[in-house]
């Protein structure tokens, strides 16, 4: 069984980081993983995206034409990548920046205003973690325990940020339920 998630947004939205956190969580759950970034000039302020491949078998192609899931953090990403998502996949939309939907009825679309929620938590930088948690809660791609452990590991050098990010995860889970 193989799952692929594409994370996409503006450079600076923490796209690469949430992809890495998911890949790490899946690795700790015993899966094979590949984290494949876009890199180069487009990372500097333009569109940034990465793909995380999670499988119970050794991973063949790390290049994925039709990912199962998409986490779109800005409108250009949604417009560019949502048509390629596999039917039955989860399509996460950052409702704070994207006023439209994908227009697809064969995917599980989840719209969460992560920026507003992050502001309520007191730190807008947690928007990406809220998005990741909401996506994981909805798709069930890894366990919430694994996700929390991976976030703690990621912030182990800045332990002060861990409680805030744990709150962000809870907020993401809550937001995924509401729809």
């Amino acid at each position: 069984m193989q799952n692929e998630v594409q994370f996409a947004g503006f450079g600076g939205q923490g796209i690469m980081l949430i992809g890495k956190i998911l890949a790490h969580a899946a690795m700790e759950e015993g899966y094979e993983v590949s984290w494949v970034p876009s890199y180069g000039p487009e990372m500097r302020g333009g569109t940034a995206y990465c793909t995380v491949v999670i499988s119970d078998q050794p991973i063949g192609s790390p290049v994925i034409k039709n990912p199962r899931h998409l986490v779109a953090m800005n409108r250009p990403s949604l417009e560019k990548f949502s048509p390629a998502v596999q039917a039955g996949g989860t399509l996460f939309i950052n409702g704070s920046l994207i006023p439209v939907g994908s227009g697809r009825d064969d995917v599980d679309e989840l719209n969460v205003p992560v920026v507003e929620i992050a502001k309520e938590l007191g730190n807008v930088k947690t928007a990406n973690i809220i998005a990741l948690a909401a996506f994981v809660a909805r798709s069930g791609i890894v366990s919430m325990d694994a996700l929390k452990a991976s976030v703690k590991e990621e912030f182990s050098q800045k332990p002060k940020l861990i409680p805030l990010n744990m709150k962000a995860i809870e907020a993401g889970i809550e937001a995924a339920k509401k729809r």
Partner: peptide, 10 residues
């Protein structure tokens, strides 16, 4: 190739 350098894997 560039992907071998840029990819993250366990």
């Amino acid at each position: 190739d560039g992907l071998i350098g840029q990819m993250m894997e366990p």
